[in-house]
Design a protein around this nucleic acid. Structure first.
Lengths: 142, 142
DNA sequence: ATCATTGCAAACACTTTGCATACGC
DNA sequence: GCGTATGCAAAGTGTTTGCAATGAT
């Protein structure tokens, strides 16, 4: 599930933005690269806690915040109460299934070339969230 | 600022969805109609507290939740920690200024006719959030 | 030895809930 | 009077912060 990133690629990415590639940070990056479901901090914590027994939620929050500040991951606000994170930084949209709650990426080719200016305002970034019924739910196996 | 809605229109709206038009509820609706800055619960509370001394935050939250369930207002998730609300239910996008934090509506005519289906998923609703520098901030008076 | 990272515990901020009072039909 | 709305206080939840222990160079 998801495209995996080599350890070297992850370390390079962290090095590039001046973040020391510690064990915890690498594991969080790896998790984000491999699990493209836009996990919450909680999900990351629960999953990695098994592999790293001393792992703490504080570290998850600290690290995600740091990675976001450095522009290596991006935070995604949804209508849920928890923030979701992703390491996919190519321009894309999101689809949220209102039935099964799945949240996945959408190619939005139109968006990449979307207006840089709209009504006189300078656009730096677009966030597109489509909500509806995903293919799986639609195809009956409710 | 904002288009105002007559008391009658507000009562009609509430009646239509089966919500009893109490004083507090009417004031909240009126505030949303008149202040199209997508206020938070806190903002609504602070403003109306002056006019209604016994006004409570619980009522704000209860009412907004009720209004949202009935489809009379919509909640808008942003990257801030507070939820923002609006009574403008016509399809539109949002612009968030990263400099002055203003959040305002955008006409997105393209969006109204946007795909009803994308990659096999049934789209019920689009949320578009453009982030950047708004016209005012751009025009120098930082 | 020094500086950064980790992680526990406590604090925080926003929102929800339990329940008693007050209101409207 | 009876059912709903209100609002206080307390609880809940996601996240941040203070700080001591640990780890890396």
């Amino acid at each position: 599930m998801g495209m995996s990133l080599s350890l070297k690629e992850i370390c390079d990415t962290l090095d590039r933005v001046g973040i020391r590639p510690t064990h915890q940070r690498i594991e969080i990056m790896k998790y984000l690269a491999e699990h493209r479901v836009h996990p919450t901090a909680e999900m990351i914590y629960t999953e990695l806690k098994e592999a790293i027994p001393t792992f703490s939620k504080t570290t998850v929050y600290n690290t995600l915040k740091l990675l976001e500040e450095k522009g290596v991951v991006s935070a995604l606000a949804t209508d849920e109460d928890q923030v979701r994170y992703e390491a996919n930084l190519t321009p894309h949209g999101h689809f949220k299934c209102v039935r099964c709650s799945a949240l996945f990426d959408l190619d939005l080719p139109a968006m990449a070339s979307a207006a840089q200016e709209i009504e006189g305002n300078l656009v730096l970034e677009y966030q597109v969230l489509a909500k509806g019924i995903c293919r799986q739910c639609r195809d009956g196996r409710d």
